[in-house]
Nucleic acid binder design. Structure first.
Lengths: 340, 340
DNA sequence: GTGAAAGCGCTAACAT
DNA sequence: ATGTTAGCGCTTTCAC
């Protein structure tokens, strides 16, 4: 079975191969009549254009890169599915780059990998969306990129963004509304800009409510289950322990619940625990977690859409697109216990 | 900044471009001397071969497809990272195809997608590794593929495989050794061959232990948290309820734990619950799950390795490679309660 | 051990 | 509205 090429189709349809190419690329200036002929030739021959040949001739690769760190499987899954949906619809393939952002040779490896694949554009997710050297490198090489969830103050390039500070603020307002005043906060990995934004929201909400901010109630976590356990142990062994703990992601919140259960604290009656991200695990654990849902899939979809516009030299409607987070109340939060 | 091509390098090194090509592809018949010259030309010019041009000329795409359904983020994550590691090391890019295996147009869509990308080979994971029409289609089109975790009886093509029946058998033997006799089983999605294998292991272990197999103790689940809840409700409302429930994956086991907790059953003392897969959630929930760990990452790595050998027409050492699963005992299992 | 010429399957630029 | 020519950057074939 020989491979069918554009020449075979041209012969079969009785036109030049340039005309075939025109039909393939939906260019103007093809009569409806010939278009029909060409399409029927496609069908009867079962023709599939060779993407590598197109790529070479048109100096595009139709390849988009997606760079991410993988602390959370659910985040990765959502970001992939959103980006993929848009890419496939536009005829692009998605190449994934899961990278350990703490690797020393990260930048060199990544740069080599990205360059050698000859990508048309790159989607950067946290914490890569905030790595200035990487951003500068891509700019210099004139490789189009888009940032997802980065810090807007770092770089003026096109970004898709969700307001972490605001979502965190909303969560804390909710906790305050339940009557909590001893609210602890577990930070995310410091390399992620979002971690700092979430802290800002926490502080703002507490200040506005007239609640004193205690340093001992703010613990540094790293987005892992184990770091959540560690922070919980430190928090719950304090003499005047918090009645609510807000963790910067759901895995850390799960760690808190484990430690609390081991200490025979009943959740949510003895202790309110909330998370961030709406990971699948937030539904699987018991009690299920009150958390913040970010529209990650939609954000990735939009990021891919914008990137493809950039690649094709079409103007962007907006350089920054913002998405809204949502508070999801489940079983792990309850009114503060009455003071004894 | 102009793109540098093989011609620039040839000029710079004072050799023909064929020689450059030889060095690029590690072919024989290049003197060490010229090889050195060429490499230094690479460095000083910062040359990166254009993958699309190589692809076109050599009639390869250096693209591997990975097809999977996504019931479990952790499974997807492991399979991706294993396959990716091997692919990148060999100069291949991985294109992901997350597909809903229950979609009516699945086969047509998938076939079109796989063909048009011009992949060199395809990695098939469950339940796609067992879809005979798909396997036949790929064989007919002479697209190399490898199956991961499929049913060996369906197709004689190269496969990477783990013995689900045996792992399930081992888990049940463990439950029996704890003194359980009322052991229930929650099946996985019936489209997955592994689901049936796991049932076989369950039946074998119980029979060997002289335990009667009760139909009411075998429930049909679908690998989702919710299906686990449903099955648990049916199981735990029975008059003579089981003292141990073995779910075919961890998400369903999490569903059991939730339902049990709501019924004030204390795990593991009142009820033993075990899962399968060693998903991250199995550690995050409380009590943590006794489960089966499959070496998914290693299996995917091996699958990619074998596939690339096939693509390159190198002989396979073994057509079928088997991996061993491992029982992981955590907190959710305990000896059977004494009969009252 | 090295090179010249041809060509992979498509698109770009310029006719007509 | 359609065709002609050239060429994308590499590998292949075959010569030396």
């Amino acid at each position: 079975m020989k491979k069918i090429t554009i020449n075979d189709v041209a012969k079969h349809a009785g036109v030049s191969k340039k005309t075939i190419s025109r039909v393939l690329n939906n260019e103007a200036n093809v009569s409806p009549d010939t278009k029909l002929k060409v399409h029927s030739a496609f069908d009867s021959l079962g023709y599939r254009p060779n993407p590598q040949a197109r790529a070479l001739a048109s100096n595009q690769s139709f390849l988009i890169g997606l760079v991410y760190s993988s602390p959370s499987n659910s985040f990765v899954s959502k970001i992939q599915s959103g980006a993929l949906k848009r890419c496939k619809a536009d005829g692009y393939n998605l190449i994934i780059y899961p990278e350990d952002h703490e690797n020393d040779y990260l930048l060199a490896n990544l740069e080599r990998g990205l360059i050698s694949a000859n990508l048309d554009g790159i989607i950067l997710t946290p914490p890569f969306s905030d790595m200035k050297p990487l951003l500068d490198f891509l700019s210099e090489k004139k490789i189009p990129f888009i940032r997802v969830g980065g810090d807007l103050s770092i770089n003026a390039s096109p970004s898709v963004y969700s307001n972490d500070a605001e979502a965190s603020y909303e969560m804390c307002r909710y906790l305050v509304s339940l009557g909590h005043t001893k609210i602890a906060f577990i930070m995310g990995h410091p390399d992620h800009a979002a971690s700092h934004q979430r802290l800002i929201g926490y502080k703002k909400a507490l200040s506005e409510a007239g609640i004193e901010i205690r340093d001992t109630f703010i613990q540094q976590g790293y987005f892992t289950f184990e770091s959540g356990e560690d922070c919980a142990r430190r928090l719950l062994s304090q003499e005047d322990r918090p009645t609510a703990i807000f963790a910067s992601n759901d895995y850390m919140a799960a760690g808190i619940i484990k430690v609390a259960s081991q200490k025979n604290l009943f959740i949510p009656n003895d202790l309110t625990v909330t998370g961030f991200d709406n990971a699948p695990a937030s539904r699987y654990i018991w009690p299920s977690l009150t958390t913040i849902k970010q529209p990650i899939t939609d954000m990735a979809f939009e990021a891919a859409r914008m990137l493809i516009r950039i690649v094709r030299n079409k103007p962007l409607e907006n350089n920054i697109v913002t998405f809204k987070d949502e508070l999801i109340v489940r079983e792990s939060s309850a009114p503060a216990p009455k003071v004894s």
